[in-house]
């Protein structure tokens, strides 16, 4: 019953995030809505069902950390941090406007709740690794979550970090791969194939699980349990749909950084209920 309530809460938050993010993209006529929508259920699950944090104390020492390595999906991140209480909703109206705190890629010096600056791909994993090592050195038990795109895993820096995390048995580190199988231009497997992704991470000393990235209950089941004592970092390969939730966007690479016209915006908000 408790879990059912949590699932419903997360669904409600995710729906609000999709509608709000799409409005931001529509108003700015800029953004990356396809990748926002594949990641939103994952991020909503983390912020509203898994992570421990206090939005009034963004620097809290033992807070759980979330690193948005796919920094272009700001529609997903900015709406999540807003819904989590880090800043008022009016800030979202300034998305990518001149001098806005809401840049096209997140900046931790602009916005509370942003843990590091991302944008160039392959940067989140090493930083998340460093956070987890700091916790290991200090004996802190907080968790560090990092979300990467799947195409992003073509960057070698991820594998440098994956090797170190496995070597150091960093059990408090959890990677979630937004496995929507599309990168900017075309499919990941047609570009520089990643499969079998779970086996790759296992070979690097990780526990690897596959999950439906839009099934909130399934995401909670793999992400919520504590990791202390597991002895290995966790990789959750979340199978997702780019553009999830809007019929004309789903699985369309063109919506990587496509933006809606007035009619598409109207249809999308009708579908997002």
């Amino acid at each position: 019953m408790l879990k059912n309530n949590t699932v419903q809460t997360i669904r409600d938050k995710a729906l609000w995030m999709r509608r709000r993010a799409f409005t931001m993209v529509h108003d700015a006529q800029l953004g990356h809505p396809g990748g926002d929508f594949s990641a939103i259920d994952i991020i909503a699950t983390l912020y509203f069902g898994v992570m421990h944090y206090d939005p009034t104390k963004p620097g809290l020492e033992n807070r759980d950390r979330f690193i948005m390595s796919k920094g272009h999906a700001t529609g997903a991140l900015y709406t999540a941090l807003c819904a989590a209480g880090y800043y008022p909703e009016e800030w979202l109206d300034t998305y990518m406007q001149p001098n806005s705190k809401l840049n096209g890629h997140p900046n931790r010096t602009y916005l509370p709740g942003v843990e590091t600056n991302t944008g160039p791909l392959g940067h989140g994993m090493p930083v998340a690794l460093g956070i987890a090592i700091a916790a290991q050195i200090s004996g802190q038990d907080h968790r560090t979550f990092v979300l990467t795109g799947d195409g992003e895993l073509q960057e070698g820096s991820n594998w440098e970090a994956a090797m170190t995390a496995g070597h150091r048995k960093l059990e408090t580190l959890t990677l979630i791969v937004d496995r929507n199988r599309l990168q900017q231009g075309m499919g990941t497997e047609d570009t520089n194939g990643l499969d079998p992704l779970d086996e790759k991470f296992r070979a690097f000393g990780w526990e690897a699980v596959m999950v439906d990235g839009h099934d909130i209950g399934a995401l909670l089941d793999v992400l919520a349990p504590a990791r202390i004592g597991k002895g290995r970092p966790l990789c959750v390969i979340a199978n997702t749909v780019k553009g999830k939730g809007v019929s004309f966007m789903e699985n369309k690479a063109s919506w990587h950084h496509g933006v809606p016209n007035a009619e598409q915006y109207r249809i999308a908000l009708e579908e997002l209920v």
């Binding site: 930083v127 987890a132 090592i133």
Partner: peptide, 26 residues
Amino acid sequence: PERLVNVGIAEQNMVGVGAGLANGGK
């Protein structure tokens, strides 16, 4: 020994880890 983090021959990782350690208060 516990405060010497050797990531091996991996400079991108090394610098990113530095940023993460700073995030973690080091």
